[in-house]
């Protein structure tokens, strides 16, 4: 179930997640559920910043430095992707 993502929440990669590159597309898959998602350039950057120690707010901050994007849009994109990753069992949150 999708839940609101707090700026202070710290996303970490789930233990059973596999990351790979296939035909120029980055893919994440849960070994348990077998579901996967394909990452575009922005999503890939978010995944790279998902290290188990960087809060969501800092992920947004760094993406705003890296890409030409408004903070509002970036916050929405990050929250949307993290919600989907959480639903697919690809990340877990700690506060």
């Amino acid at each position: 179930m999708t839940q609101a993502i707090e700026p202070s929440a710290i996303p970490a990669r789930a233990e059973d997640v596999l990351a790979t590159q296939s035909q120029d597309v980055a893919v994440l898959m849960s070994m348990n559920t077998g579901k996967f998602i394909e990452l575009n350039e922005t999503a890939r950057a978010i995944w790279e910043l998902t290290d188990g120690s960087t809060p969501v707010a800092d992920v947004v901050e760094r993406l705003c430095e890296q890409f030409e994007v408004t903070r509002e849009k970036c916050t929405g994109d990050v929250a949307g992707l993290y919600a989907r990753m959480s639903d697919e069992g690809l990340i877990v949150f700690s506060d």
Partner: peptide, 25 residues
């Protein structure tokens, strides 16, 4: 079930420990 993606994921899996759960996956 795309075989190219599947092989890529299998290769990524080979980097992990070779326990029973990895065999099942």
């Amino acid at each position: 079930s795309d075989p190219i993606l599947g092989r890529s994921l299998l290769a990524a899996m080979e980097q992990r420990r070779d326990g029973a759960s990895t065999l099942f996956a």
